[in-house]
Design a protein around this nucleic acid. Structure first.
Lengths: 211, 211, 211, 211
DNA sequence: AATGAATGAGTGTTCATTCAT
DNA sequence: GATGAATGAACACTCATTCAT
């Protein structure tokens, strides 16, 4: 199992004078990673601060030192997940890139546990104001960006324009959420070929209807 | 608050031979209802057998008397959710009915807490073999039925046939899951008009491309 | 060490049909006793539910089963203390009884730990609304009764009437509080003879000034 | 909120030889002040070194740097309280001054949190040898001084001599303790007028019985 | 002199579960 | 059939304290 995916702390540790401060950020990420792994292995219900600490090789107190709350640790994980998501979102420009983006996203999911873990966390959003806010903000931003992008492609004729860009954006989001939901339960159903065909179908449905 | 939706216990009491066991069934359903409500109100993490018992007006012991386990209570709730889902699935026959089906499904979600509750439960499927089995079976059946139905409509020319029926079925399922995910977090985004337009878009994407 | 003083549970267990219910009250008192002892031995800061449970020979969970809260356990102890106090208050009628009352009270303090324990609890009243309420109510009642009683004795000429009955009542209360404060810290200073002389002095100061 | 009353650090910095240690002393007093405030606000149970440090604007480590122990910080606070008490004790000489002394003392209590805080600390004396020693020493000294003073006034005929000076001294101490106990719980009952009447009653009881 | 990271024991509390009644 | 007393492990969290820097 690798499982650490893109959660590399290394970038933050630059040369500093005096006591190392970069450590703090590095430790946080270590704990974040441990949290992701524990959630992925044991599920949300089985994820306790104790177990996160143990997985990271720290004491219980260390976790609460870096994160005031369980809630805040979890919120941090979700935020991290969305940062990955954003990177994907901003890569590429035209419609063909949708395929590349989704493939990248499926890669992340296969490679790291961050998405399944964060996604489980998201189901708590209804009862956790902080998570709900993160969720809403991220989705709002996603919708804004994607809608604008689709609009551009509708104008250039690469995406059908008989459905509003905004509806298409929302549809894609829902589709991605649904896949993220299914993925950890039936991972075998998401082979690369299958993913390819799913994306094919989606792109075909978004293509301008041929005269 | 109504919130009980279609969870009426009476339907389950069919004619039986021997000692009437109807009461037993009725109690079970009462507890199921209480479980759904507690999960909907407090989230999965906040749902304890104690609270379910209290909500149903029973003692703690009663819950463990009717359900050997917390797991089994939860599995029973998910099963109940899918029974509702099935009813929706079997109603209607042709493509236009998709709209009716989804509308019906959105109604259930607005009316009762069963879907949001069961859906949260589903996120545990990865770590709960029993839930995973229920999930897989239900989805397999869904795919079988829906695929066959779409194939029929593809033949009759009411659904595009350049995408395999099976892929379309899976896509619809993912879409529904994604919506079910978003619904409890941003309920305001799912007004009847909005739902109408979302369904419109979906149907248009499934329609055969005009010659 | 005796330490159980007047906290006898026996009265509550009468003959009953079916499952014994009197047990409940008896267990509560057992735990109350254990709480008193732990506070007396370890101080308020050292009194944890765990230690109370252990002292009573129960598990941790049992304590929280009988008392929803640490606060409620503590409030119950204070209430118990004041019940003892009330018994003292209602015994006897005329001024000479003050001596008997105080002697009885000093006896309780020497015999059981309930007063020192409860008294320590009282210092929390400022930050614990429930305790504060108990304190205020008890003192208000004490003042009412004692004031009325002193008034009667002022009329019959056995207590000086150049100081209002109400002020004398308050003074006695403060004096008792002060003694209760000192007692656990310097117990050696409160020998029976010394107590006698302290009471003598008090009574002399309350006596009518000779013509 | 003022609340710092007489806890000004400046007074303590007297002329010293060698390296100036004034800073150190000043810091100590700052932390003492913070401790008093935290105890007054949160109660003894809620007072942690962390909170004291935060209130004073220092780091956690600083507190343990200036005070080896929590116990020692607390002991220092009690000592400080008694220094204030002593100042009161030594002011004035004859019986009329009792009123002035008590008024001064009630002023301190209304003005600063030192007495309520220190008093709460005192309840720990039973289980904290250091505190107990401070308490005993202070009271012993108080008794010595006050007894001698009352004796003098008994000789001069301004205080009744049918009760021993020592008993009167102890009585006054107990009374003051009782008031200090009640004050934080029912502050509204101690208006200046009421205090006046309480002191009146006390003085009248100490006055020589009129021929 | 002072910091703040880290510890690890301990807290109150909740909980699923058991079982005599 | 159903209760509810009791368990004991687990939880999130707080804390006094230590110590390298």
């Amino acid at each position: 199992m690798k499982g650490d995916g893109h959660l590399s702390p290394t970038d933050n540790v630059t040369i500093r004078r005096g006591r190392p401060v970069g450590d703090r950020e590095a430790r946080r990420i270590e704990l974040l990673n441990a949290g992701v792994q524990v959630i992925a292995e044991l599920g949300l219900g089985g994820a306790s601060l104790r177990k996160v600490a143990k997985k990271a090789g720290y004491t219980t107190g260390a976790v609460t030192y870096y994160f005031a709350n369980k809630e805040q640790l979890f919120a941090a994980i979700v935020e991290y997940m969305f940062q990955r998501f954003d990177e994907m979102l901003y890569a590429g420009e035209d419609i063909g890139d949708y395929r590349r983006r989704f493939e990248h996203w499926f890669d992340i999911n296969a490679d790291s546990f961050i998405w399944p873990a964060g996604f489980q966390l998201l189901t708590r959003a209804r009862h956790d104001a902080e998570l709900a806010a993160i969720y809403r903000d991220t989705y709002a931003q996603y919708r804004r960006i994607t809608t604008r992008r689709i609009e551009a492609q509708q104008k250039s004729g690469t995406i059908r324009d008989d459905i509003s860009a905004e509806l298409l954006a929302e549809q894609i989001a829902a589709l991605a959420d649904g896949w993220a939901m299914m993925l950890p339960i039936e991972p075998d159903r998401f082979t690369p070929e299958r993913v390819d065909r799913l994306l094919d179908a989606l792109l075909r449905q978004m293509a301008p209807s041929r005269s």
